[in-house]
Nucleic acid binder design. Structure first.
Length: 422
DNA sequence: TCTGGGGTCCTAGGACCC
DNA sequence: TCTGGGGTCCTAGGACCC
């Protein structure tokens, strides 16, 4: 059996854990840049607010005090998840942290007297120790555990176990096709056109038909819904194959220099992630575009890929190439909304192949690696960007809005003291 | 005025090889 | 009339996830 622990409205629940006066009142957490709502409390859902609703459409409700809101605070959410997984591990040691608010546990290697009771106990402990409510789904595989988890939110205990064919059938019949894990909006439309409304309808289709319509990933979902176990646990997260950083500007940018400054910051951010998994990248992709809601004649979108002569994780080299790429695609006259960088073709740094015509001499490269390690070390101690490249700028006028950011209650010393004092 | 960000996997089709 | 066959690698784009 597989156990899935998934937090309810996670970001909202975390904000409430530290600001109890937000409980029982409709509220939401905004996307980066405070652009739209990405997490909603149940009360907010009842008011008809949807995930993705833009901020300006909510303004009236916010002004009337009907709904509270916070900027997203990922540092805080990540740390809270770290605490939750630690607690889970005491109950179910074989865990895979799947996302910022979900954790799969494989319990097939263990014998438990009563798995459902064990789940109820775990749920209570997380609520008591961390203050975040979770739902727990238990089923023979991941896809079914997802369904059980969803159904757990309507039970009194917050735990739902699908361990018999009858319970599975009941669960599948209660699950609309677009709520099935692995079936996104595109396939859902196609399936509904075929008269497939629920997960149960879906598994009545012939397998060949599913394969043709939805490729092998669709077939995997199909087989899992039928009870087969097709997705192995991934206990150790593999290294990333691509690293991307992009943000919308605070307003719009029309000129190249501030866009270069923003891009340099994103590159530095991505390069740091690259080094932290001890990788180098062989290719970069830089893109810039206007708002997709602009009238069509004011819309522009372009990207430029650059293949690097030698794979690297040196921030300075990457910034130089990224800025070069941006200058190739920049066209004056548009109101740019976003610029971004993707680092691609990653490989371990000890497998770098030097170019036959390498212009970077090895000694210099070794020195640069030492310098980068020193910079990363200083920034880890004294704060992000304490030591930085001049092109990254100081004022950051383009930096995204975070008008109502909660404090980093658990990770910043002064905030921890404030909480204790309260 | 204003609409998020960061990933993965799969497939079709083109380029190229012998 | 009819114009080989078998394979690999790469990439763009589409689908999905949170």
């Amino acid at each position: 059996m597989v156990v899935l622990i998934d937090s309810n409205n996670f970001y909202v629940s975390v904000e409430r854990a530290f600001q109890p006066y937000l409980k029982n009142v409709a509220g939401c957490v905004m996307s980066n840049g405070d652009g739209c709502a990405i997490a909603l409390s149940n009360e907010a859902k009842q008011l008809g607010i949807k995930r993705g609703t833009p901020f300006f459409e909510l303004r009236d409700m916010l002004n009337q005090g009907k709904v509270w809101w916070r900027s997203s605070n990922y540092t805080l959410y990540q740390d809270m998840m770290r605490r939750i997984t630690k607690i889970i591990k005491r109950s179910f040691p074989d865990q895979e942290i799947y996302s910022i608010d979900e954790c799969f546990c494989d319990v097939s290697g263990h014998r438990y007297e009563n798995l459902e009771d064990k789940g109820v106990e775990l749920r209570a402990r997380i609520l008591k120790w961390v203050g975040v409510p979770v739902g727990i789904g238990i089923a023979p595989n991941r896809t079914l555990a997802k369904i059980a988890n969803k159904l757990s939110k309507n039970t009194e205990t917050g735990v739902f176990m699908m361990d018999t064919p009858a319970k599975i059938e009941e669960g599948l019949k209660a699950t609309e096709i677009d709520d099935v894990w692995g079936i996104g909006p595109r396939y859902a439309i196609k399936l509904i056109q075929e008269g497939v409304y629920t997960a149960w309808d879906f598994i009545q289709l012939p397998e060949d038909y599913v394969l043709k319509l939805m490729t092998i990933q669709g077939r995997r979902t199909y087989r899992e819904l039928k009870g087969e176990k097709c997705m192995p646990m991934e206990y150790d997260r593999p290294d990333k194959q691509a690293i991307a950083t992009a943000r919308s500007f605070r307003g719009f940018e029309r000129e190249l220099p501030p866009m270069e400054e923003a891009l340099a910051n994103y590159v530095a951010n991505a390069a740091l992630k690259l080094r932290s998994q001890r990788s180098v990248c062989a290719k970069i992709f830089v893109y810039a575009h206007t708002s997709r809601f602009a009238v069509i004649t004011d819309r522009y979108s372009a990207g430029q890929e650059i293949k690097l002569e030698v794979a690297t994780n040196d921030t300075a080299l990457l910034i130089k190439e990224a800025v070069r790429a941006l200058r190739m695609i920049f066209v004056k006259g548009y109101r740019y909304q976003k610029v971004g960088i993707e680092l691609k073709e990653l490989k371990p740094e000890n497998q770098v192949q030097s170019s036959l015509f390498d212009r970077v001499d090895a000694g210099k490269n070794e020195k640069m690696q030492k310098a980068l390690r020193a910079i990363d070390g200083m920034n880890a101690v004294y704060g992000k960007d304490t030591v930085r490249y001049a092109v990254m700028g100081y004022e950051k006028k383009w930096f995204m809005k975070q008008e109502y950011l909660s404090r980093k209650f658990t990770t910043r010393l002064e905030d921890i003291i404030v909480v204790k004092a309260v």
